[in-house]
Nucleic acid binder design. Sequence first.
DNA 1: CTGTGACTTTAAGTCCGTG
DNA 2: ACACGGACTTAAAGTCACA
Lengths: 80, 80
Amino acid sequence: MDLSKYYGAAVRQHRLLVRLSQEELAERAGLDRTYVSGIERGRRNPSLRNLQNISEALGVDLDVMFATARQIALNQSGKN
Amino acid sequence: MDLSKYYGAAVRQHRLLVRLSQEELAERAGLDRTYVSGIERGRRNPSLRNLQNISEALGVDLDVMFATARQIALNQSGKN
DNA sequence: CTGTGACTTTAAGTCCGTG
DNA sequence: ACACGGACTTAAAGTCACA
């Protein structure tokens, strides 16, 4: 199972919820814009430190991020 | 805040709960034993893929792992 | 505003050992 | 069964020009 893909989707979902652009999120997290882009598309395998940075920038705890990721994964396989 | 420290404590807590040694956990997760040791001591910054590998090896979802980590962090600062 | 490939630098992760 | 270290290989971090 490709978790990075669902994690990326969760990041995007929370980012849009708080109406940030990738650039704004990147700046808040102290990361490059293109790196955040890569994460949202599931092309990156971020380290714990960056998972935490992004979580804090979004104002969401990491466990919530991964709970969201799991929900997205379930909805994908459910295919409603 | 040093999340890797609390994440490491959460790994150890769940590992002891299912009565695995570090070596057994490492083998199940496809990782090196010294690496798992480093993670539990908060000296490592593991990637998402390995966070997932460890979670699966422990039979615990990632969001639960991080919820545990947060509980441990809270109990530390509470110091009851 | 975002996706993408290519790239260099840094850190992750392995393997050998010790007490 | 675990902590810890050194040397090593591999992958992630981090950046860029361009679509």
